[in-house]
Design a protein around this nucleic acid. Structure first.
Length: 811
RNA sequence: GCGAGAGUGGUGGAAUGGCAGACACGCUAGACUUAGGAUCUAGUGCCUUUUGGCGUAAGGGUUCAAGUCCCUUCUCUCGCACCA
């Protein structure tokens, strides 16, 4: 079969769409709120490698959906832009001296051209790029609002430091102790930082998840990351000291079993309580702990280590003197940085106590277990049970014991209910060049002073060298004429903040800028926010589950509290598209594996429409699947066949009823499957239908026209061409989605399966809706069935109308 | 270790508890030809000569009926990982 001329067709229609601004979205008030849809793709980072076939998967899915929605009468907002600040361009600048802006612009141009070649129906008039001053002006502006609300603070603290990227990292950017970007081992470094108080929103971020139509795994990952836990804080007196020691526990019911205490090596009390005999050992241990990387410290396989401080605490419930140790299995960053150790009921404490010969006292017994519980237990019991050896609280089940002991602590004034989170504040500054400058100055007299909003954007200055100093200062620190400024408050000399924002800053709110991308008065006009928000469907990779998706929810909630947006959540519905894997090895596509498929090659050889349909035909959107160019050929043949069918002589004849029925079934299935994003099965139905049309000598318009329409979201270029040939002047995307007639989707006849003991033995055909009695009678009358049940006793007959008869027999 | 998800032909994948393998790739045979990345027709889970038997990671269970629901086990993918 000759290739259909996809090259000229695709060029022709892409040009037409651009000239006619076919997909420009406007805030037309005649569309009621329920007839508006904001459908968003996660915007790409424009890397030097260009697009690979994984990118267009999500883009194709949303594009089909948007085209379908428009034909269903919705006003659709579907924008695209670029996440343009980031390290690759900066690292390239360090190597070559090329300004990151130059590389970024070139990469964006390439990406835009590649994306456009696939014929996506984006409203390109809304394109944004996070690195342009008119965009990052508003990133800075939002930062100032957060700062003014007390949600941004400066802190000198030990942070995750990537020695390769030479910058600090947020907790979310560290995976298995490695830098998420470059997989270098992360170290600790104590430097001055800007931190965002995301923990203020911990509860809201947690509760907000309930109302979101998001994949459960993503919600669960965010819940775990936030890590809310409830328990009690308890104050212990320290023998011979005025100070007290506060710990957090989720098991106040085990207080009677606390036989020792452990402080994190960094805990401030360590210096105070350590006895002179233990000073040397403790000091050595602290130094050793400080040297260890996070990865080494958190390695679960390693043996527990620790040192006795020489000091004792008093267990408030029984007055016993219990030793205070230090160990790096206690983290300074969680709770109070100190724990009461209950070795009988906590695996970690158990290991530690066993290693150092510390006493183990059982205070919880398994339900129904018989005492006495006066000996050291043989194993650690971390589960709930019944309190024992716990004074007045003995005999209470765990939950009740927790409540009663917490109440007692409160009455005694030595404890209270407490909540803790794993979520830490967000380390927001980077010691790098290619990011948004933080719009603050440090004034000797006035302290930290925000720049006046009118003075934004604070432009990123030119630098001689892009190389990070590695000392914890960004390259901006090396430009005295930029750093030295005057205080906006007192007019005296001041220094600019030299840290820049992380790449996540720009992506925290880009979906809002699309609403009003050229506004110079506000990040977006409120009426436009009200018109479109929230995002109805957001499609992107699962790798952002706790990074971008948590950060932008946080910013959005802060903006909501500032009265600047209309919803508490930005993204009502989220879908993670699966990865497209390399065809040969079923591995993630990557340059180093050499299994990357370039969409340009596919478009050149098979056309954009084949590319689009194949991407959707591969399998369900959400799952990962391997790329197969051979598989693409099948889809390509489908479109070629459609082209051949289109060349049959068109007739206005009344088409055969059988085909009309198949058409209506096809419209029904494609409508439903497109609506639910099950594109692969929609395509297979269209293949079946086209196969029937291909058998005809002439092509009845009533069979062809609606088919072209339902195929058009999938293969828009070739369908525009078909549509034009059918005599239409306006774009097919402006046409109304075909409606099926339910009665025409129903079969008149049904094949009924006859089973004997659940095994299919025969079938027969009857009119649809034939009643059960008749079905039973017919089934029993079949000669073959007679043979199967001969000499056996019929115990039961199950009849399912339009489906089957199952005869249950006994020997 | 904990949590989540997934295991269906040679391959990608279909199947409101009711005909397992739709659709497509590949393969086999034939037809046709302006020899193409063709196209068309037929076939294609396994075993069996037909009748039939077996078959959705393995094993058990519920049910008239299980790929689908329940339990146990295995494998793979992802996430978290001393958070007291």
């Amino acid at each position: 079969m000759a290739k259909y001329p996809f090259e000229s067709i695709e060029k022709k229609w892409q040009k037409r769409w651009e000239e006619d601004q076919t997909f420009k979205a406007t805030e037309d008030p005649s569309f009621p709120k329920e007839k508006r849809r904001y459908v968003l793709d996660m915007f790409p980072y424009p890397s030097g490698a260009g697009l690979h076939v994984g990118h267009p998967e999500g883009y194709t899915a949303t594009d089909i959906y948007c085209r379908y929605l428009r034909m269903q009468g919705y006003n659709v907002l579907h924008p695209m832009g670029f996440d343009a600040f980031g390290l690759p361009a900066e690292n390239y600048a360090i190597q070559t001296g090329t300004h990151p802006e130059v590389t970024t612009k070139a990469n964006i141009n390439r990406f835009r051209q590649q994306i456009k070649s696939l014929g996506f129906s984006y409203d390109w008039s809304r394109e944004i790029s996070t690195c342009t001053p008119d965009y990052y002006k508003w990133t800075q502006w939002i930062f100032l609002q957060l700062f003014k609300r007390g949600l941004a603070y400066e802190a000198e603290m030990p942070i995750n430091w990537c020695p390769s990227c030479k910058t600090g990292l947020a907790n979310e950017e560290v995976k298995d102790g490695l830098c998420d970007r470059c997989h270098t081992k992360v170290t600790r470094k104590r430097i001055r930082q800007w931190v965002l108080k995301i923990t203020d929103y911990a509860d809201q971020l947690l509760d907000g998840l309930d109302e979101l139509d998001w994949p459960e795994p993503v919600k669960l990952m965010q819940r775990n990351w936030i890590g809310k836990s409830e328990g009690a804080s308890v104050i212990f007196h320290i023998d011979g000291h005025e100070q007290t020691l506060e710990v957090y526990t989720t098991r106040p019911d085990t207080l009677f079993g606390a036989t020792y205490m452990v402080l994190a090596p960094e805990h401030p009390l360590v210096q105070v309580i350590t006895t002179s005999e233990q000073k040397k050992k403790v000091k050595d241990y602290i130094e050793e702990a400080a040297r260890k990387s996070d990865l080494e410290r958190t390695d679960l396989a390693k043996e527990k280590t620790g040192v006795f401080t020489g000091c004792y605490a008093i267990n408030p419930v029984n007055g016993s003197r219990i030793p205070i140790w230090i160990s790096d299995y206690v983290l300074i960053s969680y709770g109070t940085g100190a724990i009461m150790a209950v070795p009988a009921h906590d695996e970690r404490d158990w290991d530690f106590a066993k290693k150092f010969g510390l006493p183990i006292v059982q205070v919880v017994a398994e339900k129904g277990a018989q005492g006495p519980f006066d000996r050291e237990p043989e194993y650690c019991l971390a589960a709930d049970g019944i309190s024992v050896n716990s004074g007045n609280f003995s005999g209470l089940p765990t939950v009740e014991a927790q409540e009663k002991i917490t109440a007692w602590l409160e009455r005694e004034g030595i404890g209270k209910k407490a909540t803790n989170y794993k979520l830490r504040d967000w380390l927001f500054s980077r010691q790098r060049y290619w990011g948004e400058p933080i719009p603050l100055v440090h004034c000797k007299k006035c302290g930290i002073v925000p720049l006046p909003e009118e003075s934004l954007p604070l432009l990123l200055p030119e630098v001689k060298s892009y190389a990070p100093s590695g000392t914890g200062e960004s390259p901006l620190a090396n430009i005295p004429e930029w750093v030295n400024t005057t205080c906006p408050h007192c007019g005296g000399p001041a220094k600019r903040e030299t840290n820049t924002m992380p790449q996540w800053a720009g992506s925290c709110w880009y979906y809002l800028r699309y609403l009003d991308p050229h506004n110079s008065e506000a990040f977006a006009d409120r009426s436009k926010i009200d018109y479109w928000m929230p995002v109805n469907l957001y499609v992107g990779g699962a790798e952002h589950a706790v990074l971008h998706l948590l950060y932008s929810r946080f910013w959005h909630k802060a903006l909501y509290d500032l009265g600047l947006v209309n919803t508490k959540e930005p993204f009502a519905r989220l879908i993670n598209q699966g990865m497209v894997l390399g065809g040969e090895d079923n591995q993630k596509m990557s340059k180093s594996r050499g299994n990357v498929v370039n969409p340009d090659d596919i478009v050149a050889e098979y056309g954009a429409d084949s590319m689009r349909v194949y991407e959707m035909f591969m399998g369900p959107l959400e799952v990962s699947k391997p790329w197969s160019t051979a598989g693409l050929v099948g889809v390509s043949r489908f479109l070629e066949r459609a082209w051949l069918v289109s060349e049959k002589p068109l007739v206005q004849d009344e088409p055969p009823l059988e085909l009309v029925k198949l058409l209506h079934k096809t419209i029904k299935k494609v409508t439903h499957d497109t609506d639910t994003l099950n594109f692969n099965t929609a395509i297979s139905q269209m293949m079946i239908y086209l196969g029937e049309l291909a058998k005809l000598k002439t092509l009845p318009v009533p069979l062809w026209e609606p088919f072209v329409q339902i195929l058009s979201p999938y293969a828009p270029h070739v369908c525009e061409e078909f549509w034009e040939r059918l005599g239409h002047k306006e774009s097919i995307s402006k046409s109304k989605w075909p409606v099926y007639e339910e009665s025409l989707t129903l079969d008149d006849e049904k094949e009924i399966v006859v089973q004997v003991n659940g095994k299919i033995r025969e079938r027969f055909t009857v009119a649809a809706g034939t009643d059960e009695a008749k079905l039973r009678q017919t089934a029993l009358g079949l000669p073959k069935i007679g043979e199967w049940i001969a000499g056996k006793q019929v115990a039961k007959i199950i009849v399912v109308r339009d489906k089957l008869v199952n005869i249950v027999v006994k020997p």
